[in-house]
């Protein structure tokens, strides 16, 4: 009956993220961080989780039509999946470049749109994957290993 590791159910968190909702952006990041702290994750994992989820939230708020953030916490790793319903990224390689941004002027005026979100996510996560289809949506998956 018992299958070793699969016996523990990971902690799962789910956050809906609405397009244009700047007020609540950051809430998911803050909640995830609090859980990780109680579970005993350390500085570097917590730092990356907080930054990566905030950037992912912001991308959904700014660039997408709306989406969600799903988090699974296992004893050895944290898996973050940010998924939205479009419009998708036409050139993912370009979007991944440091400093590249299509953020509209009024968003830049608010201090967003430095074009560092995706690169920062990739740099701090141990595993990073981005999949995007025009008109369908974008899914960013990140895995952070404990103490990694």
């Amino acid at each position: 009956m018992t299958e070793g590791k699969s016996e523990i159910t990971p902690i799962e968190l789910f956050f809906e993220i609405e397009r244009g909702d700047f007020v609540r952006a950051g809430e998911a990041s803050s909640k995830i961080k609090k859980k990780l702290l109680r579970l005993g994750f350390t500085g570097s994992t917590i730092r990356c989780a907080a930054i990566a989820t905030y950037e992912a939230e912001m991308n959904i708020v700014i660039h997408s039509l709306g989406g969600s953030l799903k988090v699974k916490i296992y004893p050895e790793k944290v898996v973050l999946v940010a998924k939205d319903e479009g419009p998708g990224i036409p050139d993912v390689a370009l979007a991944m470049k440091e400093g590249f941004s299509t953020a509209p002027e009024q968003v830049r005026e608010m201090g967003f749109g430095a074009g560092m979100g995706l690169p920062n996510m990739r740099n701090c996560a141990d595993e990073f994957e981005i999949e995007s289809r025009e008109d369908v949506g974008t899914t960013v998956t990140m895995v952070l290993y404990k103490g990694g």
Binding site: R38, G40, I73
Partner: peptide, 11 residues
């Protein structure tokens, strides 16, 4: 604040 030294137990 950590719930348990052992991460499996903490979860």
């Amino acid at each position: 604040l950590r719930l348990d030294e052992d991460m499996v137990k903490a979860i």
